[in-house]
């Protein structure tokens, strides 16, 4: 296989809050993974498992408790403020935030929110070009270009989320962290936005870290998927492997809870509970171990053979 370019490398990342205090939270607790250029890497897992914290660490909103993050081979903690490298980093990595309300400045007009990046990075020559570009972006995300002078509170929840997407796309980044970008949208627009994100990806060779809890959508958009639980990765593999041949009991439990738009199925649904005590009953260290080609499971050395057998079936 030809060596694929790694755009992101996360190495033994730990991110603790209030370390050592009674309210200590080990939000991310020693995770490692790579994201290849041009792929969509899906990150799923239950609420509070550390998905957003992982994304926020990658975009340098936190200083890791320990571990390293590389962007295009460069250790991001070593990028100096106000340097050329920093400008490059800021432009090429963008984030679409989970909370569209908190992430849009309520006092700014939509056109200024979207154009902020264009201004910072000097991507437009004059006001006319700026307006033109903003209107284009609004159209791209399915908003009325005539609404450029409105304020965020004059939009519905889903409309605001699309403003966040337009803002991220404005500066033509290489890598986008999309933290639940579509969960606030109605399904017909979810489909539009996902189709759109895929189109742009193909055209610009974009890479996505796609964080979500809507498993059917994550499966649809992702090439590879990692399943997170209590700050650790439980399973990592191709979207097909993780969905159609899940190995870790946590993944199985998660999949058994995906609601389907069919009342009869929902009336008869039984969910598989996850018993986390299996994580305690081994002696050697639990870590991600390769079970099949590129398919990893968080387990101890002694459990590997069991998982391999399961996969044969």
């Amino acid at each position: 296989m030809t060596e694929r370019k790694k755009i992101i490398q996360v190495q033994h990342l730990k991110q603790y809050f209030s370390p050592g205090k009674p309210n200590e939270v080990r939000a991310v607790d020693d995770i490692s993974f790579d994201i290849y250029e041009g792929e969509t890497f899906g990150l799923v897992g239950e609420s509070g498992s550390g998905k957003s914290t992982t994304g926020r660490s990658i975009i340098r909103l936190y200083n890791p408790t320990s571990g390293k993050i590389l962007f295009e081979g460069q250790d991001i903690s070593k990028i100096k403020n106000h340097s050329k490298d920093m400008l490059h980093f800021r432009r090429n990595m963008q984030m679409i935030f989970q909370d569209p309300y908190a992430s849009l400045d309520p006092r700014m007009k939509v056109k200024d929110i979207i154009a902020e990046g264009l201004d910072v990075h000097g991507l437009v020559k004059n006001d006319q070009e700026r307006d033109q570009r903003v209107k284009e972006l609004l159209k791209v995300v399915g908003l009325n270009p005539d609404h450029v002078t409105r304020y965020p509170h004059e939009f519905s929840g889903g409309q605001r989320q699309r403003i966040g997407i337009a803002r991220a796309l404005a500066v033509d980044p290489k890598f986008i962290i999309a933290d639940e970008p579509i969960s606030a949208l109605d399904v017909s627009i979810q489909a539009q936005v996902v189709n759109l994100m895929k189109d742009i990806q193909r055209k610009n060779n974009l890479t996505y870290l796609f964080i979500a809890h809507d498993l059917s959508m994550v499966k649809y958009i992702s090439d590879r998927i990692a399943v997170m639980h209590h700050g650790q990765l439980m399973e990592l593999g191709s979207a097909d492997a993780v969905y159609n041949h899940p190995l870790h009991p946590y993944t199985k439990s998660l999949l058994s809870a995906v609601p389907l738009p069919d009342p009869e199925i929902e009336r008869r649904r039984t969910r598989l509970p996850y018993d986390s005590s299996i994580e305690n009953n081994t002696h050697d260290q639990r870590q991600l171990r390769e079970i099949g080609d590129g398919h990893y499971v968080f387990c101890s050395e002694e459990e590997v053979d069991g998982y391999k057998e399961q996969m044969q079936k």
Binding site: D186, V187, S216, Y220
Partner: peptide
């Protein structure tokens, strides 16, 4: 009809999701 048709299922793959084209009225 459009709403119920644009849901991906766990086995939708590759193809474009069906969506309702256009935007709602002003």
């Amino acid at each position: 009809w459009g709403l119920l048709s644009s849901m991906p299922t766990l086995d939708t793959k590759g193809a474009k999701l069906s969506s309702i084209p256009g935007t709602p009225p002003d």
